[in-house]
């Protein structure tokens, strides 16, 4: 993978809107003349769904590998072209309650790297959309050498979302200690609509030593566009919400922040919540 390919990974608590942010960000970046590859790192294979007309990608890397094997040609059979020519890949993984999804994610990303998917498709921006929390080594794969060194925390003002973001910071801190170049590049505040959410997230970011790279308001347009099988960027391009995603894309393109975070105790997170939410 060429060094000029910019690779970012989105991490955050389950259902905090990582995939929604990822697909809208992908379209925004593509429309800013970047050639984007989005890689879903979840057995649910739903990351790229709204880049593919609201359909779950028919083939995923691990299923294809199991059925037919993967080589430098076959890998391109599972990478599909979606909205605006964005390339979409899904790592795939086991059915619920079976197998080891972490190992699968690590292997799928290895294939993408090994067969130089980015180089051969002329990709210059990769977004890894990673399942929920860093629950095991496999899901930390996007953070390791040769993958994304730039991590964005997708979070909101709810306790468990903050707790999860803090845990991801712990993982990054540990990896950085052992010499990995992975850093936190910022927090994407994908707002849930809680009281004083911007201020709360600002303070949370200060505690971690990480800046807020964008505040994305909650919008009905997200579910409306999904109902139409697409992204806000595609279905409502002139909406204020689409502007927010464009602003986020621009902020990420301009962003040079790379921080080894300073994770905190749960009591500190509770302290912020009490301050802004009067718990």
């Amino acid at each position: 993978m060429g060094s000029d390919v910019r690779q970012i990974a989105l991490y955050g608590k389950g259902s905090c809107g990582k995939s929604t942010v990822a697909v809208n960000l992908a379209v925004a970046l593509q429309r800013m003349n970047r050639k984007v590859l989005q890689v879903g790192c979840s057995p649910k294979v739903d990351s790229t769904c709204f880049l593919l007309g609201g359909k779950i990608q028919s083939d995923n890397i691990l299923e294809f590998y199991r059925e037919k094997g993967i080589d430098e040609k076959k890998i391109f059979e599972v990478i599909k072209e979606g909205t605006d020519g964005i390339w979409c890949a899904e790592a795939g993984g086991p059915a619920p309650a079976e197998g080891c999804a972490g190992r699968g994610t690590a292997l799928a990303l290895d294939f993408i790297k090994k067969y130089d998917v980015a180089g051969k498709l002329g990709i210059d921006f990769i977004i890894y959309d990673v399942i929920a929390d860093v629950v095991c080594g496999g899901f930390a794969q996007p953070m390791r050498e040769g993958y994304a060194k730039e991590i964005y925390l997708v979070a909101n003002g709810e306790l468990m979302s903050l707790y999860s973001a803090n845990n991801i910071c712990l993982a990054v801190q540990e990896l950085a200690k052992s010499g990995a170049e992975v850093r936190i590049a910022g927090i994407i505040n994908n707002m849930r609509g809680v009281v004083k959410e911007k201020e709360l997230m600002q303070e949370f970011g200060r505690l971690l030593g990480v800046g807020i790279v964008g505040n994305i308001p909650r919008s009905e347009l997200v579910s409306q566009s999904e109902a139409k099988g697409g992204t806000v960027m595609e279905k409502f391009p002139d909406s204020p919400q689409a502007s927010e995603y464009r602003n986020l894309a621009k902020a990420i393109l301009d962003n040079t922040e790379r921080t080894i975070p300073t994770p905190v105790e749960l009591s500190s997170i509770m302290g912020i919540l009490r301050k802004y939410q009067a718990l």
Binding site: L62, Y65, G93, E98, G99, C100, R103, L107
Partner: peptide, 10 residues
């Protein structure tokens, strides 16, 4: 093999 590690081997 690897596929059973990922998808389960029952």
């Amino acid at each position: 093999h690897e596929p059973e590690v990922i998808h389960g081997g029952t």
